[in-house]
Write a protein that binds this DNA or RNA. Structure first.
Lengths: 363, 363
DNA sequence: TTGTAAGCGTTATCAA
DNA sequence: TTGATAACGCTTACAA
């Protein structure tokens, strides 16, 4: 690639020269604009003589021509842009997913538009509308809580969409949209198995916010696996959100419940666990020694918290990558059958779980 | 807002009805398209009679009209889109910045295009070109290593840009681009003061990758403050990158250096500290008890690692917000003087620092 | 293989 | 205040 032509030295700083257009290249190369378009577009290069293609490319290069995705998009109704909505970028499980998504899309020539919904359905709808305005070719929703209209909004707007780490409730039009999630039921089951194997019999569940599919699945998986061991939940409590603060509050409430002694708590996600640690510290209880704690996600650095968290490792990367691949495939062929991918999680045993004490520390 | 017209029940799934355009609205409302444009664009609404504005709005609403940012962008050469380049989304200091940026920009009606450079200058250049293709109105660079052509590329492309958490080296055309950074020299100085106050005299520095402005500034700040205390660095070592693994490797090297006993190490960032902890554990050394460690950034959850990290808290939010504000201001007025904002960091004392032992654990 | 011409949806300029 | 017209930069039937 050569440099663009030297700038007019008299130009105001900030006032850059007008970009070369296809018409400019056409004039310089002595061919028609449509020929330039064909020569410069990799998909249509074959329609043009090798010699012409070379000459046009050289001229384009010399003039510093850059394609205008905007002009092309107006004509083709495609922006080569994909939007991704996340509930909360601060939650460490999303950056790895976003990283995987962006990397895969960039390799395919797509730009990635990111927005935070902050768990606000109204904001989510607004952002989807805005993305539609920008003519995104597809949308990845890591934010759609079951029951909100995000998915039907996408359908109305004619935007292909896939869900990441969220899925539609069973039966509620599952087939309408593809989803890539963890096998949350299986995952929480691994935690239950581990706790039971350690000897725990009185196990509580600190769940995610109600209505979120990950929370629902993990709760259900918890109950089912416990039942398979012939046990009942010692206590159940949803957190208000997947935040450290909500985890602290929920754990405090759990500890305060009368007559609900438990020796272990299976928590719906790692972020909540940080709050659980906070609440236990405040209550003078030791993690593992007094109450065993399991997390979910194996988010970065939980191997370095104290005590290191026993948790369920999910496949962040695969999640982002697969969702992006499915979206691209469905964009290319809208009749393609929808997919419901469940990635298999794995148990990571660290130091936050131990055999139970004889007397429940919390009763 | 009312619903768009019901879809044709015979339409293929995925084949949504063509979106209403301004021309459609004009026909239905019995006015000319340009009038519709004026009525619907908040900036020009005043040019049109109240009655007409109302009628047009009603029709637009009924037809489910949405503006096409693409068409408008082609005409106005503005996309209402801002790009942000980050070196590594996985590094936890970036999500909060990105969150702040996206929130502020969304409130101003801008969409945010995100891309990862993975610290690769070639990739960075490519992504900037691609963003130019998408006609971004401005660019936020959290990735520009001093010396790479990113800034001059933006200038050539005529894209307003600001740096976040990075700045141009002194004298190297500082004035050309605004930057929002931490006062890194002051920040590392706080760590040095704290260690000296604890009684440390043999203090090492584990720095960031060479050529990165944060690394340069922190190194310089370390030396300067140490000199003010009448001390020499006990040892200096740059990490290859701001990663846990690079931190581990650099700490191993530091521990292996002959005759360089030190009782404390001021590390250039928290991520590196995780590796420092790893290396110390592997070497059978205790953080704080044997060697005190300070970090930089106060990234999420370092209060929960063991021992809790003494570090320098930076203003992530303010950084993203201010950078976005400056960018918007410079987009509005390109002649606006460039700004070089340095945010003031603060020392957070936790458990990774303690008075030195008499005999250096590492000599 | 190349040229012609129309059009994507919006906004800006000019005239009425 | 509103209407007519052109233009933004590119793609794509269709014609040559």
């Amino acid at each position: 690639m050569s440099l663009p032509p030297p700038r007019d030295p008299d130009a105001l700083p900030g006032a850059s020269p007008p970009r070369a257009t296809i018409a400019d290249v056409a004039r310089e190369a002595g061919v028609h604009a449509s020929t330039v378009s064909r020569a410069l577009n990799p998909a249509t290069r074959g329609m043009v003589t090798e010699a012409v293609a070379l000459r046009v490319a050289a001229v384009a290069d010399r003039l510093g021509w850059r394609p205008s995705a905007v002009a092309a998009g107006l004509r083709t109704r495609k922006s080569r842009t994909i939007g991704i909505l996340v509930p909360d970028l601060i939650n460490p499980i999303f950056p790895p997913i976003l990283h995987a998504v962006e990397t895969l899309l960039a390799a395919q020539g797509y730009a990635t538009l990111v927005a935070n919904t902050d768990n606000d359905p109204a904001r989510e709808a607004l952002l989807i509308e805005r993305m539609a305005t920008h003519l995104v070719d597809g949308l990845m929703l890591a934010s759609a809580a079951a029951g909100t209209g995000a998915i039907s909004l996408c359908a109305r707007l004619g935007i292909p969409a896939v869900l990441i780490n969220r899925r539609m409730p069973e039966g509620a039009g599952c087939a309408a949209v593809s989803a890539v999630t963890n096998d949350d039921r299986h995952g929480i089951g691994l935690a239950v198995d581990h706790l039971v194997a350690l000897g725990h019999r009185r196990i509580a569940h600190l769940g995610g916010p109600e209505g979120v599919s990950t929370a629902t699945d993990r709760l259900q998986g918890f109950r089912d696996r416990l039942a398979q061991h012939g046990l009942e939940p010692a206590a159940l409590r949803p957190a208000q959100a997947y935040t450290r603060e909500a985890g602290r509050a929920a754990m405090q409430a759990l500890l305060a419940e009368p007559g609900k002694g438990f020796t272990a708590v299976a928590v719906a996600n790692d972020m909540l666990c940080l709050g659980v640690y906070d609440a236990m510290e405040a209550a003078g209880l030791r993690v593992a020694a007094d109450i065993s704690v399991t997390g979910f996600n194996d988010m970065p650095f939980v191997d370095r918290i104290h005590p290191a968290l026993t948790t369920i490792r999910i496949q962040h990367d695969a999640m982002g990558r697969q969702a992006a691949e499915i979206l691209l495939a469905e964009m290319a062929d809208p009749t393609r059958p929808r997919q419901n991918i469940r990635l298999v999680p794995e148990l990571v045993i660290r130091a936050s779980t131990a055999p139970p004490v004889q007397e429940p520390a919390c009763r």
